[in-house]
């Protein structure tokens, strides 16, 4: 019994150190963002900011007239990306999992193969295409390439394969069309997988940097990460301000995760990636 107690304490010790190690950089950043600029880099760092100030956060809104716009742009793009990914990836996933059609195997392999292509190979070509369509510096250039992805298709395909066929066969005999079966029977069953995919695509869109940086070039069209980058170069020495700005970027995704986490992990578990 005593040995068990000791083990339990040891376990908690390990858990707390892991949590500290992963959280430390974030906590230090939060506390630095709540200090006046000249105290942000003091050594040894004081985790509890004194004097405590929200000035940096207020300043973030004042120094760039576009800051609210960046927030709105990021939220808008993330929502559109999530909707598109959920719709298109589940459509493709259903076809790959359940329907038979000529060239299915080849198309599925090509989809997986697209995950292996280095970004450097695609950037020039994609920019040229966006340019010829007149999409440079518009949201189309960001939305369309992120509207579907191999990872999402793979996730949904795996999930749909796990749903018993009997469910849809009954509906098929009743004369339902495939599209109706997909919409009315399959999609409602897929909510755990859709939840997981929603968070994955939200994260991808919210944190996207390289491609938006290439195609969006005026400040009013920036997303938050681009705005932060711009901030960083303008106020390089004002760490407290840059960190306060970055909180606007980190906190929403952390909240979303906290909110959805149970659901999320269940979602991946039931897709049975095996």
């Amino acid at each position: 019994m005593k040995k068990n107690q000791a083990l339990k304490y040891l376990l908690y010790l390990v858990l707390i150190s892991i949590a500290l190690l992963t959280m430390a950089p974030f906590l230090v950043s939060v506390s630095a963002s709540l200090k006046p600029a000249e105290k942000a880099l003091e050594w040894p760092p004081n985790l509890i900011p004194s004097p405590f100030t929200l000035d940096n956060y207020a300043k973030v809104w004042q120094v760039s007239p576009f800051f609210p716009k960046w927030l709105v742009n990021s939220v808008f793009l993330a929502i559109v990306h999530v909707i598109c990914q959920l719709l298109f990836c589940s459509m493709a996933g259903y076809a790959f999992a359940r329907l038979s059609f000529p060239g299915k195997k080849l198309l599925f392999l090509a989809t997986l193969g697209s995950m292996m292509i280095p970004a450097q190979a695609t950037m020039i070509s994609n920019y040229a295409i966006a340019n010829s369509l007149g999409w440079v510096n518009t949201f189309y250039a960001v939305i369309v390439p992120g509207a579907a992805g191999a990872f999402g298709i793979f996730l949904m395909t795996q999930f749909f394969k796990g749903i018993p066929r009997e469910l849809e066969e009954a509906a098929h005999i009743d004369g339902c069309s495939r599209l109706l079966i997909f919409w009315r029977i399959i999609l409602p069953l897929a909510t755990p997988a859709l939840g997981a995919l929603a968070i994955f695509s939200f994260q991808g869109s919210w944190n996207g940097f390289m491609w938006p940086l290439i195609v969006l070039n005026t400040p009013e069209n920036f997303t938050l990460p681009l705005g932060l980058n711009y901030f960083r170069s303008e106020y390089a020495t004002d760490w407290a301000l840059v960190l306060a700005g970055s909180m606007f970027n980190s906190v929403p995704i952390i909240l979303i995760f906290l909110f959805f986490q149970r659901y999320f992990i269940k979602g991946i578990a039931t897709t049975g990636l095996k």
Partner: peptide
Amino acid sequence: TREAKTAYLLVAPSLIVIGVIALFPILRS
């Protein structure tokens, strides 16, 4: 044939995106 038609309809949006932004560029490279 009907099933294949439905399938192509379902995979089309995703495959067009992937084809244009990933497969075409690697062939071009």
